[in-house]
Nucleic acid binder design. Structure first.
Length: 518
DNA sequence: CAATAGGAAATGT
DNA sequence: ACATTTCCTATTG
């Protein structure tokens, strides 16, 4: 049983900011495949709010923190966890987001998630608020704040990475204060898993200290947790000097934090009694998921849901967005987008085929054709170094920490043209730039391998070149893909006017050219 | 040492 | 034909 906890900051309950009116040249350029859904969505938050169409985009006001956790839907302890669902945490006035149903990933909470806001002053982040030199943007209501928010939103990404630091693991990462997590989600997984195990087996000796620090920082900075448990806030400073010395003191804190996180996610997982794999859902589970998702996004409950959706998860997964829209004009897009996320998240974790679910007869047929991504172990398996394998193993069962931002899931404001019934993995001829946008739009899948630095300008940074390359390789079924090649491809875009170098060139930072950054 | 930059050729669709 | 992919050399920080 592995689990991890992700902390990220979410924000406010409104996004009444003046929407940036932007033509949608990009859409015109976007090939009508399901990937375009993500590509298109990547900055929906900037689009005019389409009345009636719910969005799950980032919200840029009232900075707030949301703590979410993700891990395997455990096969044990489920009972007890079920007994203490999320509501338990509402005590201090800090309600957690409605339980995301997905055990592996935490989905973004809808606009109005009642979140606490006093965390705005979250330690260590402040200094970054002004660190951008690229904040000048046409939308006053968004820019600075939005960027700040993004920093908070994408969990495992160290704020430092926005500074001059060229690499996620560079000197910058030594700065404890502002580094809640390592930039590499993969590392985080490992750390967490390791920590968990250590905790279970040997409460005392925690050999690997470096990773612990990340987790500890994460846990400790998570004041929500403390408040919820009426714990005296711990002085982070005390850990900066020597974690080893004081470890004993906060060990319980960690336990509580982890427990807290776990319980919450488990409750969610159990609540719906569904598999992490949408394809394994029974029709009734499909209904449960649909309802839950509708509620989560505060969409009008659908009448005759059972009649409208008679298919099981596998069939549901094959439905096109159009079909969703046809059946549920108001919420179809969102549901479809959410389903895509689930599929992606699951597909990205091939090893996670949970055993805990009520296996449905006949569903085993599903995976191969629809989930090419599941094959990634094929090429991870051998030639790759051990570390890679371990990484995959660690990542797989432990869902990518879902930075709840469902930007990716956000339905496009305009009923789009996306033909295929959405499969997640599949080779296909997706373009690299599309893929990158897709990743950028779905931290659920990419972890923090890549993220926006200035969304309005289309500037992004690859935090984990290895991982991004690997993901790209998977998508294109190019096991030998690496960052060297990927970057070469990106460089081709310079000439084509799809991407360009940033003014002040920074390592691993790229920028989409105009229509492509829309 | 990893990243950046391109040229050039190979490849897959 | 096109969009990479692959390989490689040189340069840069």
């Amino acid at each position: 049983m592995e689990y991890e906890k992700m902390l990220y900051l979410a924000n406010g309950s409104e996004m009444p900011h003046s929407p940036q009116l932007k033509p949608q040249p990009f859409q015109a350029l976007t090939p009508p495949d399901q990937y375009s859904a993500y590509a298109d969505n990547f900055d929906l938050s900037l689009l005019p709010q389409d009345a009636g169409i719910p969005t799950t985009v980032y919200q840029y006001n009232a900075p707030q923190i949301k703590i979410e956790c993700a891990w395997d839907c455990p096969t044990d302890n489920q009972q007890q966890q079920q007994q203490q669902p999320a509501p338990a945490y509402a005590s201090s006035g800090h309600q957690l987001i409605p339980p995301p149903a997905y055990p592996h990933s935490v989905y973004p909470s809808p606009q109005s998630s009642p979140l606490q806001s006093e965390f705005a002053s979250f330690g260590g982040y402040g200094k970054f608020h002004g660190s951008y030199d690229c904040l000048s943007s046409p939308s006053p209501s968004l820019d600075a704040s939005s960027i700040k928010q993004e920093l908070h939103i994408l969990p495992p990404s160290p704020p430092e990475s926005n500074c001059e630091t060229p690499s996620p693991r560079s000197a910058c990462s030594e700065s404890i204060k502002a580094e809640p997590l390592d930039s590499s989600d993969i590392e985080s997984f490992i750390d967490l898993n390791a920590l968990l195990q250590q905790q279970q087996h040997q409460a005392q000796s925690l050999p690997d200290t470096k990773p612990d620090h990340q987790l500890l920082r994460e846990c400790l900075e998570d004041t929500t947790f403390q408040k919820k448990h009426n714990l005296r806030p711990l002085a982070l400073e005390s850990f900066i000097g020597g974690l080893a010395e004081v470890r004993g003191d906060f060990e319980p804190v960690i336990s509580l934090a982890l427990e807290h996180a776990k319980r919450e996610a488990d409750a969610i997982c159990m609540e719906l009694q569904i598999s992490q794999d949408p394809n394994a859902w029974t029709p009734s589970q499909v209904h449960a998921w649909l309802r839950s998702t509708l509620a989560q996004f505060k969409l009008p409950p659908a009448a005759n849901l059972e009649l409208k959706f008679s298919e099981d998860g596998a069939a549901l997964a094959l439905l096109s967005e159009e079909e969703f829209m046809r059946r549920l004009p108001e919420s179809g897009s969102t549901l479809h987008a959410q389903l895509e996320i689930w599929k992606m998240a699951y597909a990205d974790q091939p090893n996670s085929q949970p055993i805990q679910q009520q296996q449905q007869p006949g569903l085993d047929l599903w995976p191969p054709a629809s989930y090419p991504m599941l094959n990634l172990d094929d090429f991870n398996g051998d030639s790759e170094d051990e570390e890679e394998m371990e990484v995959e193993a660690a990542v797989a069962p432990t869902p990518t920490p879902i930075a709840a931002v469902t930007a990716a899931a956000t339905p496009t404001s305009t009923p789009v043209k996306r033909t295929s019934g959405g499969r997640t993995g599949g080779g296909s001829h997706i373009h690299l730039w599309q893929f990158l946008k897709e990743l950028l739009a779905s931290p659920q899948v990419n972890g923090t391998a890549i993220r926006w630095i200035d969304r309005t300008k289309g500037i992004f940074k690859i935090e984990d070149s290895v991982r991004v390359a690997k993901l790209w390789g998977r998508r294109k079924n190019r096991p030998a893909m690496n960052y060297d090649k990927l970057s070469r491809s990106i460089r081709q875009y310079y000439k084509k006017g799809i991407m360009k170098k940033t003014e002040r060139s920074q390592r691993l930072v790229y920028q989409f050219c105009h229509p492509y950054n829309q």
